[in-house]
Amino acid sequence: MSKIILARILQGIPVLLIVVTATFFLVRAAPGGPFDAERSLPAEVVKNLEKRYNLDAPVLDQYVDYLGNLVRGDFGPSFRYPNRSVTELIATGVPITFELAFYAAVIALLIGVASGVIASVRPNSLQDYLPMSLAMTGICLPAFLLGPMLVLIFGIWLEWLPVSGWGYSPGDKILPSVTLGSAYAAYIARLTRAGMLEVLLQDFIRTARAKGLSMPGVVFRHALRGGLAPVVAFSGPAVAGLLTGSFVVETIFQIPGLGRFYVQAAFNRDYTMIMGTTILLSCLIVMLNIVADIFAVWMNPRLRQAK
């Protein structure tokens, strides 16, 4: 097992290198530079700026320089925020967004798996339709819609919860977490139900039932492991999606997280910041997918036999 994990981590190196290289050239090829603004600058000022940020060197040299700095752990200064390094910007955003994503993931998994399992145990009954309808409603309510709605109801009409912030006043973490988690809860509910139905129809479940095991026993002892396979496959990218998707929620709720940096960097053509966030994201994706795959093996012992 550890050998496989090591191999996977090693595979991450070329992945990272390709992502870094492609992103480096893509952002420079995109129209508009970091210093383009409403007011165009006198040529002498532009020249000064380009010199300051090494943008007047040939692109290949810039690339080699960048890689060199990267190896030393230097992500460079942000173009948009001249007195901050990319490392610092990421460091301020990461804990907040990770916390937000964590709560959202917990909400999504708890609600999603629970309602998916409940629905699958008795397909095509009220017990199926009710949670599934809720799930579908959740899918229809993307964050940019659900967020303002929740704020309106709980923040403005009922005045129960703050309309913005993250850890500044009591209860201000609830609405953002629910907003971000609900769409994923809906996905997970649907996928769980589908996965569970596949498993519940299989022979070993029928056998277990025939032996007189109770349904909850069957579900928890046998079915859940296999039935969650699609969810596990989905969860790797989903968690990465939580991080990038948190942009919408962070904007609505005025949360100083990484999502805003990630999206703003692209809009601002903040080259170094785009690189920094992209590298972080690719590391996450590589790691999360490794975790998801290990989890899949753990849940389905058959995957272990071959090789």
Binding site: V15, I18, V19, A22, T23, L26, V27, A30, P237, A240, V263, A266, F267, I274, T277, T278, L281, S282, I285, V286, N289
Partner: peptide
Amino acid sequence: DILYALPFMI
């Protein structure tokens, strides 16, 4: 994995 990680907006 690579395609997931590339900045989609750009």
